[in-house]
């Protein structure tokens, strides 16, 4: 054991190495001072104040939030991608379907013997309907993105759980 190895030895998980470092420090004033400083640093960093009641309450609140959430489907990134693609297809479909009806409307000159009698096209309500549909799809996409993010977190927690648990 020499002075340069003191800190490394003290941080070792090997009790024998730690003991050797302490024995060395007992005979070396410089290392003794280093060891005393390290002990103070460790003691300061290890100080835990009692858990404040507000934090305890926050912990309990979190349990209610978690429990009250409905059980979610087991989304996978692939499933989320498929759902996003499906939503995009619906948007395209709605757009394509809406095109001919609008062009018919622009050519429609009012009821006549040639046109279909009694069929009227309300452009404003149609536009409102399509806007609502697009907004709904947009909302679904945002929800899917949030869900995917949440799944990432849950997967990470599950991995951590695997590391620390015995089944």
């Amino acid at each position: 054991m020499n002075c340069d190895d003191l800190i490394t030895a003290m941080e070792s998980d090997d009790a024998a190495e730690q003991q050797a470092a302490r024995s060395h420090a007992a005979t070396c004033p410089n290392c003794a001072a280093t060891l005393a400083a390290l002990d103070k640093i460790k003691a300061t960093l290890a100080v835990h104040e009692p858990l404040p009641s507000a934090a305890r309450a926050a912990w309990e609140r979190a349990s209610r939030v978690s429990v009250s959430e409905p059980a979610r489907r087991r989304w996978t990134p692939a499933l989320a991608a498929i759902a996003t693609l499906a939503a995009a297809c619906i948007v395209v479909f709605v757009f394509v379907v809406s095109q001919p009806r609008n062009s018919t409307f622009t050519q429609w000159k009012g009821p006549s013997s040639d046109s279909e009698p009694g069929v009227e096209f309300d452009s404003s309500s149609e536009l409102t309907r399509l806007t609502a549909a697009v907004e709904a799809l947009d909302g679904r996409l945002v929800a899917l993105a949030e869900n995917a993010e949440r799944l990432d977190v849950e997967r990470e927690v599950a991995q951590t759980l695997k590391q620390y648990s015995r089944w």
Partner: peptide, 21 residues
């Protein structure tokens, strides 16, 4: 701290047996 609590409670649903909580 609160976010940690939410994550912990969610994983507690599966009642894990923790060797090192």
């Amino acid at each position: 701290f609160q976010e940690t609590a939410v994550r912990v409670w969610r994983s507690m649903v599966s009642c894990p047996r923790l060797a090192n909580p």
